[in-house]
């Protein structure tokens, strides 16, 4: 189908973008970045914004940089930027593995990291990364700038803490310390399809023992989240098949899975345990 009518407002700077958003958000206006989720929604008439504020021409939004121990991803950095590590440490390598599971090659040339965070699809890989690694979202509006912690960002399916007149200007992800190991596993039925379950794990290797363990789940509940009961089982233990299996079982016990016509909650509960175990097994430095 074809999208409904809208007025198009290309922004040339971040200041202009938030000014346009302040003007048009009350008139059913919203931001378009890569548009790889928004435009299909418009074509299917699930979304029909009256105004689109286009930030593709905002130069300062296309930058990814490391600053004060954080990877800072601008509002219009494309998924494809992560095909090669964006920083030389474990985080850059992890993101370059995760990106291959995001949709398809041409979609990744256009879709953006921050757009995924703002869209907050339960099956978003970048949302899982943000939730598990404790990213901070920087929201800008004409009223000012505020920083929102990952734990406060997600408000359920495709809903976030972002106000109508706010633009997600950048996402800040803490770098993983040297000696970290991190793994990601996603299960989907077809190449490039939405995940039915995915898991991200990370820990710091302390002479063969696991410290600061993080276990995140995605595409299994209404939003990605860390599973504290499973993380607690890791501390101080050697990275072993036994520890991985126990953590996976704790995750399965903790989640409240979404279900649909094709997949029962029981199946998804089992699947997320497998995803967690495989994420551990495939973890690299």
């Amino acid at each position: 189908m074809k999208a409904g009518s809208f007025e198009w407002h290309p922004a040339r700077s971040a200041d202009e973008a938030v000014a346009l958003l302040a003007e048009y958000a009350p008139q059913d206006g919203r931001v378009i970045a890569g548009g790889q989720s928004l435009v299909p929604s418009m074509a299917l008439r699930l979304a029909f914004p009256a105004h689109l504020i286009d930030i593709n021409g905002v130069e300062e939004f296309s930058r990814v940089r490391v600053e004060a121990g954080e990877l800072v991803v601008g509002a219009c950095v494309r998924h494809a930027a992560f095909h090669q590590p964006v920083e030389p440490g474990p985080l850059g390598r992890l993101l370059s593995r995760v990106v291959h599971d995001i949709a398809h090659w041409p979609i990744r040339q256009r879709g953006t990291f921050c757009g995924s965070l703002a869209n907050a699809d339960p099956a978003s890989e970048w949302c899982l990364v943000a939730a598990t690694l404790g990213a901070r979202m920087v929201a800008r509006s004409v009223r000012g700038t505020r920083v929102i912690e990952a734990a406060d960002w997600f408000h359920g399916i495709m809903t976030t803490a972002l106000a109508d007149d706010e633009l997600l200007a950048e996402v800040r992800i803490p770098l993983l310390p040297t000696g970290s190991r991190a793994g990601f596993y996603e299960f989907s039925r077809r190449a490039g399809d939405y995940a039915l379950a995915m898991a991200l794990v990370a820990w710091r290797d302390d002479g063969g023992r696991m410290r600061e363990g993080r276990i995140g789940t995605g595409s299994i509940e209404v939003q990605p989240r860390r599973i504290a009961t499973a993380e607690a089982l890791l501390d101080g233990r050697p990275a072993s098949a036994e520890a991985f299996a126990e953590a996976a079982a704790a995750v399965s016990a903790a989640v409240d899975p979404l279900e649909d016509f094709h997949t029962s909650a029981g199946y998804r509960r089992d699947l997320i345990g497998t995803a967690v175990r495989r994420a551990f097994e495939q973890a690299g430095d």
Partner: peptide, 27 residues
């Protein structure tokens, strides 16, 4: 498909393959 799934409409924009049904002409 007109919603980015099939790829039949793929064209090159600045040398990069993109779905032309997911980009507005004005962009």
């Amino acid at each position: 498909c007109e919603h980015g799934v099939c790829g039949a409409c793929t064209v090159l924009m600045d040398g990069v393959p993109v779905r032309s049904c997911l980009i507005f002409a004005v962009q």
